[in-house]
């Protein structure tokens, strides 16, 4: 019963979140709040699904403490308290849940290792191929295509191509570097990795793909916003347009052209920030969403009859 309620919570949040969070103006007016909202949703869905899985292998309600009851159940099953059939069924269910959870965990560990290793390799290669510019605090890569990027990690590195140095004015370059430094300072790669890893662990859950994309969009907006506090937004906009159009081999498809246009509009006409009371209300709603699975579990534990009424 508890599993049913928790799965219903997970499904409801997963289905509703994209409708509530994608292409809503408040999310883009306050990117940090938007990022918080996405993480509240991801937390809620994964905790609800995890608790549902856990509750399947635990005779519920037995004790308040979930982990404690898991141990009790294991011990009881080993002693044969539930009879042979119960023993086998319980072991099979527990085995399946553990297998799925273990597989997801393995995917996450492998993927995060390969992300870190790929970045380290890239950083090492950039160190060999590029030249360090102490004046700019960046590594300059000999390349005609104008580009600037951050290789994230503990020893992050900002890379700028010679093409970008030729193309951009000093003010534009400064704004671009501020954007990349904002990525580093905000640990944006960790925020993006959360979305990436969830998507890789559960590729069949559409929510995670949407979350990964939206988190990427929001961290770009946030970095733009940070850069705009110290530099003229028009400089960053000009740099973005110059780099986007300057590196274009003809006839190819753009992946994020739409986002780039949207960002240029945002820089030039920044949306009004949200009122404090609106922010507080949204934040409260996010806390509520994040706490939903725990609330549902507590409700099911306290009032099993009520829950069966709700579900039927």
């Amino acid at each position: 019963m508890i599993a049913g309620l928790l799965l219903a919570v997970a499904a409801a949040v997963a289905l509703l979140a994209p409708r509530v969070l994608v292409n809503r103006s408040w999310v883009y007016r306050a990117p940090v709040l938007g990022l918080t909202a996405w993480y509240a949703v991801l937390f809620s869905v994964t905790v609800a699904a995890g608790l549902a899985a856990l509750s399947l292998v635990i005779p519920w309600p037995r004790t308040v403490d979930v982990l404690c009851s898991l141990w009790t159940w294991c011990a009881d099953a080993l002693r044969g308290t539930y009879g042979l059939a119960g023993h086998v069924a319980g072991a099979a269910a527990a085995g399946l849940v553990l297998l799925l959870a273990g597989r997801a965990a393995l995917v996450v560990v492998r993927a995060s290792r390969s992300l870190a290793a790929g970045r380290a390799r890239h950083r090492a290669a950039v160190a060999l191929v590029g030249t360090h510019s102490p004046a700019l605090g960046v590594t300059v890569l000999e390349h005609t295509g104008p580009a600037a990027y951050l290789v994230p990690g503990r020893q992050h590195r900002i890379v700028v191509t010679t093409g970008a140095l030729e193309l951009l004015s000093p003010n534009e370059l400064a704004a671009v570097l501020a954007h990349e430094r904002a990525h580093a300072a905000g640990h944006h790669h960790l925020l993006r990795d959360g979305g990436r890893l969830l998507e890789r662990a559960c590729p069949r859950v559409p929510l995670f793909a949407v979350a990964r994309r939206e988190i990427g969009r929001l961290v770009e907006m946030h970095a733009d916003q940070v850069a705009a506090t110290r530099h003229a937004p028009v400089d960053l906009a000009r740099a973005l347009v110059a780099m986007a159009t300057g590196s274009a081999p003809a006839g190819a498809l753009a992946a994020t052209g739409g986002d780039a246009v949207e960002r240029v509009h945002r820089m030039l006409r920044p949306p009004a920030p949200l009122h404090r009371s609106v922010r507080a209300g949204l934040l409260a709603a996010m806390v509520l969403v994040a706490m939903l699975p725990l609330g549902a579990a507590a409700l099911a534990w306290a009032e099993p009859a009520l829950v069966s009424c709700l579900l039927l």
Binding site: H179, R192, P249, A255
Partner: peptide, 11 residues
């Protein structure tokens, strides 16, 4: 990498 603009093969 976190790039200022990212395109698959251009725009």
């Amino acid at each position: 990498a976190e790039a200022l603009v990212r395109f698959v093969g251009g725009m």
